[in-house]
Design a protein around this nucleic acid. Structure first.
Lengths: 332, 332
DNA sequence: CTGAAAGCGCTTACAG
DNA sequence: CTGAAAGCGCTTACAG
């Protein structure tokens, strides 16, 4: 087992002190150009890199961000993480990714580990069951900034970067009206989730405010399978003219599409389809599904900006809502 | 900024030495039960947790595994990672996930960081362009075991855990024959990739060895869009009786399905469809697509087993091929 | 411009 | 059974 090069080794070879080597390497003004040159040359030659554990022990800072998400198999989180990594690289930070598996106990363990590792900051989408804010407050006390994104707590006094649920719902509802649909089946997720509430409220409000008389049928489903079963039953009863299906999420869209395909129905001829989505699932179908986009990439940029503000000492908190964009497929 | 509790703090409060506290906490036989009890109680009370940087600096071991993948938005990798995490938890290791974005330069940086952090081991699916084995050899010299999975190098002397490409292709070909298909359109990815070669070779061999006369049309496409365009062209020319489409990957399946939907064709009536897949995409369609499964979960278990062997000192290397399983949807 | 020294928080051989 | 001491690799105030 070969040892990594250390300051000591460089110092010995060059017959100077460790202190000087350390300073030379960080381009300290006190060190003579000559010494700097010698040190840097040798360091490059033997591929010196500071031991991050020693540095951290000394300085209490890690130059590492943690991103904690419930799941990885999710295009939205994936693009969020890409976005954070892209920015982090620019500022010389690295990013470590943790997966809570939607389990509050695992989440807690991860948070603890982040605290002990004194990460520079944490981006987190909490689990559906996360209730206890204490671990987050503890982080705060230790000066580790936390930026919540996507799945955020109700707790007021924290940084939250969210998808514009209401705005996305509004875009979708508006498009349904514009296309002259009169019968709408709207499928929402778990009624207790805040995003369900936000999307539902604005969606119905928009349809209500229309001059046209819209017949709205709202149902709830908490899984792809449940969606499929419920939609199948409804479609079997027959389809009205100017009919449209709205799916509040990708999971629901997947279930609804299965029922629709199963019935042999085609969009946009037989019915219109529109969803709120990150854009992955809609592209798999022909015609592509029209959707109001919730972009992880844009959210990442916003979250990173907020994080850097925190790190530079700003103590005030903020909730940022990202507006979404309508992406037209041919399904409506 | 509150300080984390340290051994020193416990020692002071209890009026004993740091050494004793340290020993008590790790249940060292030398320490009296009485002292142990006192120490442990106080430690729990003030939520003591050892500073991982200090421990590592002292012991040179991190109890952390790194998983490096080209991309996260991939159900296969997601289930691989889940699997590794599950096992790691049992053995008291934590897992950090890195994303190379399929960029050899980023990959190199990650490897370097893993080396400096002295992670306990690395699981890696390399980028398509990774050619240089030197960084991996360097890791080896430092006693950091590397287990390659899925995308592995050609280099002989290393641990590789792979999907059974040939076996999966064989399963798919066998199923096509069993269903009495006579005309087969087989779509493969980039011809230079080793998995393409392996899958292609066995697939054609299986069909060739049949007593029936099979008309096989092999095409290549390196993206979903390219697949869609090519398949569309072929399907437009008309479909023979007993026709089946084979897709070597999810990406290709997605493209092919778009073309098939676009043509208004239905499986299994108009044509049969079969793929090699991790199981995510096939489930979105109705009927679900029949596929030879490449399970990230099972691969993870195998990889973890290999890793633990390495850690326990075994120096011999091994290539493990995971067999796949046929999952029947209704598409063939 | 350079170096000796202290200390970050821990572990462990050594001495008692 | 307990403690003093050295040391992991680094940074930085202090002294020269």
């Amino acid at each position: 087992m070969r040892q990594n090069p250390t300051l000591k080794k460089i110092a010995e070879k060059l017959n100077i002190s460790i202190s000087t080597v350390s300073r030379a390497l960080k381009d300290h003004p006190d060190v003579s150009p000559d010494t700097k040159k010698k040190v840097n040359e040798l360091a490059t030659l033997i591929e010196y890199d500071p031991n991050p554990y020693a540095v951290n022990l000394r300085t209490h800072s890690s130059k590492e961000f943690a991103v904690i998400v419930p799941s990885l198999s999710n295009y939205f989180y994936h693009s969020f993480i890409s976005s954070i990594e892209e920015e982090a690289r620019v500022y010389g930070y690295s990013v470590i990714i943790y997966r809570s598996s939607n389990d509050p106990a695992i989440e807690l363990e991860i948070l603890k580990s982040c605290r002990h590792k004194r990460v520079s900051g944490i981006f987190i989408a909490i689990t559906a069951q996360t209730k206890n804010m204490e671990p987050f407050l503890k982080l705060d006390v230790q000066g580790i900034p936390v930026v919540f994104f996507d799945k955020v707590p109700n707790y007021e006094s924290c940084n939250k970067i969210c998808v514009g649920d209401a705005h996305a719902a509004e875009l979708a509802a508006g498009e349904i009206l514009r296309k002259g649909k009169k019968h709408v089946l709207a499928i929402f997720g778990d009624q207790n989730m805040s995003i369900t509430k936000a999307r539902l409220e604005r969606f119905t409000a928009c349809l209500d405010s229309s001059n046209e008389k819209i017949l709205l049928n709202v149902i709830y489903a908490s899984s792809s399978e449940e969606t499929e079963a419920k939609v199948l039953k409804i479609l079997s009863a027959g389809i009205k003219k100017d009919f449209a299906v709205f799916c509040m999420s990708d999971e629901i869209l997947a279930g609804a599409m299965k029922a629709i395909q199963r019935m042999g129905l085609k969009a946009p001829e037989d019915l219109g389809i529109i969803a709120i989505s990150d854009g992955m699932i809609p592209q798999i179908f022909y015609p592509e599904i029209t959707y109001a986009e919730t972009s992880g990439f844009k959210l990442g940029k916003l979250a990173f900006g907020r994080m850097m503000k925190c790190i530079s000492g700003s103590s005030f908190v903020q909730t940022i809502i990202d507006e979404s964009v309508l992406v037209s497929g041919g399904s409506l």
